[in-house]
Amino acid sequence: MRRDPNVNPVSIVMIEDDEGHARLIERNIRRAGVNNEIIPFRDGTSALAYLLGPDGTGEASAKRPLLILLDLNLPDMTGIDILEKVKANPHTRRSPVVVLTTTDDSREVQRCYDLGANVYITKPVNYEGFSNAIRQLGLFFSVMQVPENP
């Protein structure tokens, strides 16, 4: 994995419990030419511990530009819980959150946007669609400005 901190020091935090999905997402992001560091988490607890720090204040993420890829269906909590906590914390609320999940229920989509999600993507079973979506997301990442957390 090649890193170029001067051009784009953004880290991608991927919270996805399905190992296969995580691998497919990573492969397609790389195919899109995005080479940022990807930090994978398989459950909500460890992801929150990373994002908000062991003390839970969120200061751990201060001055750290992050982009969060979030699955809603996690074993220990729902992605909504994580979204709420991230958007409520002054140190993490500016990090863009991309919800990437199997759910396409319109109410769920609305709820995520209401809570401050920046993008909501449904994982299509059709692999063509899936890889396309991820690759386009990767292209999107490469041009996206991610603010540094206060």
Binding site: D18, H21, L24, N73, T102, K123, P124, V125, F130
Partner: peptide, 8 residues
């Protein structure tokens, strides 16, 4: 969810 893997 597993179907996404199978297909992928």
């Amino acid at each position: 969810a597993p179907l996404v893997n199978v297909m992928g």
